[in-house]
Amino acid sequence: MTTAARTSRSTSSGPAVAMVLGAAASVQVGATAASAMFEAVGAVGAAALRLLLAAAVMALLVRPRAWRWTRRQLGLSAAFGAVLAAMNTSFYAALTHVPLGVAVTCEFLGPLTLSAVLTRRRRDLVWVALALAGVLLLGLGGDGEGSRLEPVGVLLALLAGAFWAGYVLLSARVGAAVPGQGGLAVASVVAGALVLPLGAAGAGADLLHGHVLALGLVAALMSSVLPYSLELVALRRLPERTFGVLLSLEPAIAALVGWLLLSQALPATSVLAIAVVVVASAGATATGERGHVPADPEPLAHARGRDG
């Protein structure tokens, strides 16, 4: 790398770091907006509305020409959408039972375990074990209000993590098979269409109330469009390893957002548990294969920029 290139990379890394952290915070603010809809339309209704509005925005911005795609491209995008729908619905359902920081921390086990399985290195299993210990420690801390964590909420968050792992696998394939952001746009449409019948059955006309639509649009923009855009730009300026370590802070960011916006204070034990998971995730990323700035960062942005 030339001196000029190194200088350019160092001068641009500061804003890029801010973009990654801003994207992580944006996702959690979007989840907060979605949770504000739960009382009116329920978790499934909120997921349906957010996915549909995100799909509308993505379709307008990207304008994918899906009618020109091959059967394989359409099939991968449809499968991507199904996983996206399941991931978001189970995550939102988890938020009705456990605090935001707890849900995100449990969800992180999915991609972390996937990373260890794919690398097939024994030391990565140590990081997974450490993260699992952190999640188990969460159960000792409770929900911050003197009650034990609801097991159903933890299970739903872990389920969302499993779907997140599937999302990572499919996003890489979709990113390689479909040029640009078309695959993500079509997947968003599929996800919204899959969840809409369940959301409409439970919420009905309440989905069309002005304040619900406004919250849904905020959730769509903050959880999908804005973080994906920020991460895509950041990936052009940061090594993959640095990018991954920064995203490992997401459970801590979620706990902070939950405390600031939802008054979800967590006990010291839960804070320690979240810190353990953050260390495990950052450690797995930092000790992985040496990263680089990819020529085309969109597939990695698909994998990282999931809708939470």
Results as ranks from 00 to 15, higher is better:
134 G>A: 07
96 T>E: 14
116 A>S: 06
113 T>I: 09
97 H>A: 15
119 T>F: 12
80 F>V: 07
79 A>I: 15
98 V>R: 06
97 H>Y: 13
91 F>Q: 04
129 A>H: 11
107 E>T: 04
101 G>H: 01
138 L>M: 06
112 L>M: 15
82 A>R: 12
126 V>W: 11
129 A>K: 11
100 L>Y: 05
108 F>V: 11
84 L>Q: 04
114 L>P: 03
102 V>S: 02
77 S>R: 08
100 L>S: 01
107 E>Q: 12
113 T>L: 09
114 L>H: 00
137 L>M: 07
93 A>E: 14
142 G>H: 06
113 T>G: 14
96 T>I: 14
97 H>L: 15
127 W>T: 09
123 R>N: 15
127 W>S: 11
110 G>R: 02
104 V>T: 10
132 L>C: 14
112 L>D: 08
138 L>H: 02
122 R>W: 14
140 L>R: 12
106 C>K: 04
145 E>G: 15
111 P>K: 01
94 A>G: 09
124 D>Y: 08
95 L>R: 01
105 T>F: 06
88 N>D: 13
85 A>P: 01
120 R>K: 15
78 A>F: 13
142 G>M: 00
145 E>T: 12
144 G>N: 03
88 N>S: 15
120 R>N: 12
139 G>S: 12
138 L>S: 04
114 L>E: 07
80 F>R: 01
136 L>V: 13
83 V>I: 10
143 D>Q: 02
87 M>G: 08
100 L>H: 03
76 L>Q: 07
100 L>M: 07
87 M>K: 14
83 V>K: 10
90 S>I: 09
123 R>W: 15
125 L>S: 14
90 S>P: 09
105 T>Q: 10
86 A>W: 04
137 L>I: 09
119 T>W: 13
80 F>K: 02
137 L>N: 08
94 A>H: 06
140 L>F: 15
88 N>V: 14
80 F>H: 06
106 C>I: 07
146 G>F: 03
136 L>T: 12
121 R>Q: 09
114 L>K: 02
128 V>I: 10
81 G>L: 03
101 G>N: 00
98 V>Q: 06
118 L>D: 11
133 A>Y: 05
97 H>G: 11
142 G>R: 05
131 A>E: 03
131 A>M: 05
91 F>T: 08
109 L>W: 02
90 S>V: 10
84 L>G: 09
137 L>H: 09
97 H>F: 13
84 L>M: 14
106 C>W: 06
91 F>I: 10
78 A>Q: 12
